[in-house]
Design a protein around this nucleic acid. Structure first.
Lengths: 239, 239
DNA sequence: GGTGGTCAAGTGGTCTGACCAGTCATGTCG
DNA sequence: CGACATGACTGGTCAGACCACTTGACCACC
């Protein structure tokens, strides 16, 4: 028997999610004034510090603009938000946002090969790659394989030795992981191609900066196609 | 006469920057325990709520791990941080981090062409591009030209109609903007190539998804080369 | 008619002090 | 020696207060 983790969410976190939910849902439009902290605190049944902390995070993330004395106004998160709000946009209120999912897939397909190329150029810390491939191969669970594949890519990003791409990967993973279980069926196609992983690992460790991007693109494009197709179907079904 | 805006920094923001500074400077290593909120508050001469809010933001950004009852521990920001901490890594304490700068340039060079390609594919909302090129051309101030060029790229990203790339752009811009003035000399080379911008704009509005990435790469690679060279020189000088 | 001054109300900014809840090291007892 | 109570310490939350600031209305003045 497995026990689901008891979730202990913090109060400010809850408030943050709640307000952000209103924001991405569109009931709070850019430029509009947020209710005052005191009013929000009363409406949500929490104390002002909790609301303050949540709003402070939102301001830090560029989602709202607070001005002392004046009202806190909503910013256009598409113009001012950072990559870290991606998870909230992907699953606003539990439903998958198809446009966001599509854009994440595009980003994955575009960036993966670049990172693989950089990793091949610098092939310094890529010694662990073959073991990571074996780990994918050994894992029989579809979800487990996805996690192993994620770990594989993490090593690739590490080998690329680029802070910017590393942080980008972290943000994208944060958006991807919650949907990981739901995607396991569609992704099985990709994570089963052990040979493709092995070839990519070999190109990187071998320092083949020409082949690595090509192999990475080849590896990623299959599932990307499948997923985009699935998204199209979903979109049709929702209409 | 122009007046510089009076900047009013918030106390929690100050605390955040201070602690993050310690973190990226390496005096707080991953796994290490942060001083308690009360101790930090006393050490920094502020109240506990201010410290709490700062730590709350850091936890939200994945920089530290707080556990009720236990100590707050430092995470490895390279493994858990999001793209939004990039500005802090680029200018830790005012000095430019060369490796970070290099990685941002690589990311720019890799992503720009992809976004341009997507924009050409979808050429839906690219009507404003020619005007943006004219805006670059009209501006005589080197720094102003850079800002106009940034606005140009913003339109390109918009035309690409990809949320993920949009947010990525926002994060990268946040890292880039503080250094904009310092870079104006090296970037002048790029922003003076009005014809290259015009050609790229034409390819995008014309829906030429083959030429757009090529033109974008061509446009970006020049300054990238120059900047990487400048970074090498800087690195040599620092040694 | 425009300018600037004054004032009150409302907002965010910060602090204090308090209590709750969870963790951990300590020391005691079996 | 080991299991276990216990107390010190940590973060989580709250209420209430005061300060700093913005806004808008009103008013006196030029």
């Amino acid at each position: 028997m497995t026990f689901a983790k008891i979730e202990r969410r913090s109060l400010p976190g809850e408030v943050y999610d709640r307000v952000l939910g209103e924001l991405v849902a569109g009931s709070l439009t850019p430029g509009q004034a947020l209710p005052s902290e005191r009013a929000l605190a009363e409406a949500l049944g929490v104390s002002r510090p909790a609301v303050r902390e949540a709003i402070g995070r939102m301001a830090h993330a560029g989602l709202v603009k607070v001005r002392q004395g004046g009202a806190t106004t909503v910013s256009d998160f598409r113009r001012t938000g950072g990559l870290d709000i991606l998870p909230h946009l992907l699953l606003p209120g539990g439903d998958l946002d198809l446009a966001v999912a599509r854009s994440i897939l595009e980003a994955r397909l575009a960036i993966g090969p670049v990172v693989a190329g950089l990793a091949a150029e610098r092939h310094g810390h890529a010694a662990a790659l073959p073991a990571a491939v074996t780990a994918i191969e050994t894992d029989t669970d579809p979800v487990g394989r996805q996690r192993q594949a994620l770990a594989f890519w993490e090593l690739v990003v590490d080998a690329a030795d680029s802070v910017a791409f590393r942080l980008m990967f972290n943000s994208l993973r944060a958006a991807y992981e919650p949907a990981l279980v739901a995607l396991s069926a569609v992704m099985a196609d990709e994570v089963d191609r052990i040979d493709a992983y092995r070839a990519l690992a070999a190109a990187i460790t071998g320092g083949d900066a020409d082949a690595a991007p090509r192999l990475a693109h080849d590896l990623l494009s299959h599932a990307t196609q499948a997923l985009l197709h699935a998204l199209d179907l979903l979109e049709g079904a929702r209409r």
